[in-house]
């Protein structure tokens, strides 16, 4: 039941408890108590709105920054990761396999703002060996959703 709820909510966080109960053939009480439990257990750790900022009047840039760091005795990458994810400008941090160690996602208003953040805050941290900043120029697909795709139902209106 839990995984079923999560799979549906993964695509539509705003689905009502009533609808969830209907499509999963459960009672509304069951559904809301499961959701509450999962929130408490941090399985569900938040709700996010997917926004195409390019369609708004706000300036918004997104950068993926590859960071190489020196792991520390006893703490591995965790301590330096924490130094990084505490910054409000940082929206996500992932420990990676491959050619670099941390993928840091930074959101800002302008490229300059993000570049300055990297230069003044990130690159100068102890244990950070190098950074490589990659700006997102256009989003095609995010969280399983294709942006800017409008689909019309072209099926024959009534068919056998």
């Amino acid at each position: 039941m839990r995984e079923e709820i999560l799979r549906v909510m993964d695509r539509n966080a705003r689905i009502s408890v009533t609808d969830l109960a209907a499509i999963l053939d459960a009672s509304e009480d069951e559904i809301s108590s499961e959701i509450t439990k999962m929130e408490r257990e941090k399985i569900i750790y938040g709700y996010h709105t997917m926004i195409d900022w390019d369609r708004t009047n706000d300036d918004h840039v997104l950068a993926l920054i590859e960071v190489r760091v020196t792991p520390q005795r006893d703490q591995g990458f965790d301590a330096v990761a924490e130094r990084i994810y505490r910054f409000e400008e940082v929206s996500s941090v992932y420990l990676m396999s491959g050619a670099f160690d941390l993928m840091v996602v930074v959101e800002g208003k302008t490229m300059k703002e993000v570049a300055l953040f990297v230069a003044r805050r990130l690159a100068v941290l102890d244990y950070v060996l190098s950074t490589s900043t990659n700006f997102v120029l256009k989003k095609y697909k995010e969280n399983g959703m294709v942006l800017a795709e409008e689909k019309k139902d072209e099926r024959i209106i009534v068919s056998a």
């Binding site: 139902d153 099926r155 209106i157 009534v158 068919s159």
Partner: peptide, 26 residues
């Protein structure tokens, strides 16, 4: 002619029809 066809002729003449009438996947 199939009964579907007769009904289709009426429905396709109307505007803003919300159909639950198709026999193929969406």
């Amino acid at each position: 002619p199939s009964g579907i066809r007769r009904f289709f002729d009426i429905a396709s003449e109307m505007e803003h029809v919300i159909s639950l009438g198709v026999g193929e996947p969406d």
